[in-house]
């Protein structure tokens, strides 16, 4: 299954490079959102709590603007039936998840670099904790976004439905990641952040299990 999913992922990458379906929208969103935040802050020195919150707000909304494309683009192009005819649901979900994982990490690395360059308060004092938070936070974000994208792809008002459905599902993850990012800023030790880390890791575990269990029913009309 891994090879087949990887082939589907390569197809999506190739398709994305030719159509620029998600990348352009995502990069523009990141630039606009961070510019607006920078303009509104001006010369103010903002608290680490607010910096962490704004960081994850940008991550959340950029995920909202780009990650649904994995399934929505198939539905809009009319190729969903073709996919159903060439692969099992597990292969399709794994391939799409892999694509969203890579896309999430790619855009969030860019967001992190921009934040590090332009936000004074974005100073990481516990890098290992930040790295673990970043990795598990992004994995959770990609899994939830992928399964929600598969649900909303068949709906009429996809654009509105995606953030509405994603918000309650992603809220526990985002809130915990904001808290962990604050810990990274104030240099809290890894041991003291274990409780929050356990929440993020459990969230990822639950979402991946639920997604694989449900996708078969979502995918088959």
């Amino acid at each position: 299954m891994i090879t087949k999913s990887y082939s589907l992922f390569l197809k999506d990458i190739k398709s994305e490079l030719r159509t620029r379906y998600a990348i352009n929208a995502l990069v523009m969103f990141i630039l606009v959102a961070i510019s607006v935040i920078l303009f509104s802050i001006g010369n103010e020195k903002i608290q680490p709590e607010l910096t962490a919150g704004l960081y994850w707000v940008v991550i959340f909304f950029s995920a909202m603007s780009g990650l649904s494309r994995a399934f929505v683009s198939e539905e809009e192009k009319g190729t969903t039936l073709t996919l159903q005819l060439i692969a099992s649901p597990d292969t399709i979900f794994s391939g799409k998840l892999l694509f969203n994982l890579i896309l999430t990490f790619f855009i969030n690395v860019i967001i992190t670099l921009i934040y590090a360059a332009f936000f004074e308060g974005f100073v990481i004092n516990n890098f290992v904790l930040f790295l673990v938070t970043f990795i598990f936070g992004n994995i959770g974000l990609a899994i939830s976004s992928t399964i929600i994208a598969s649900i909303i792809a068949k709906a009429g008002s996809k654009g509105t439905l995606y953030p509405v459905l994603s918000f309650p599902v992603l809220l526990p993850l985002i809130l915990t990641c904001v808290q962990l990012t604050i810990f990274c800023f104030d240099g809290t030790s890894f041991a003291n952040a274990l409780y929050e880390l356990a929440i993020v890791v459990s969230y990822d575990g639950i979402m991946i299990t639920v997604s694989y269990l449900l996708f078969d029913f979502i995918w088959k009309e």
């Binding site: 039936l81 073709t82 692969a87």
Partner: peptide, 16 residues
């Protein structure tokens, strides 16, 4: 899926 061939007007292949 590996045992079925399907042709229909609403089947769309990747145009890119």
């Amino acid at each position: 899926f590996n045992h079925i061939g399907f042709v229909s007007p609403y089947l769309i292949l990747y145009e890119e």
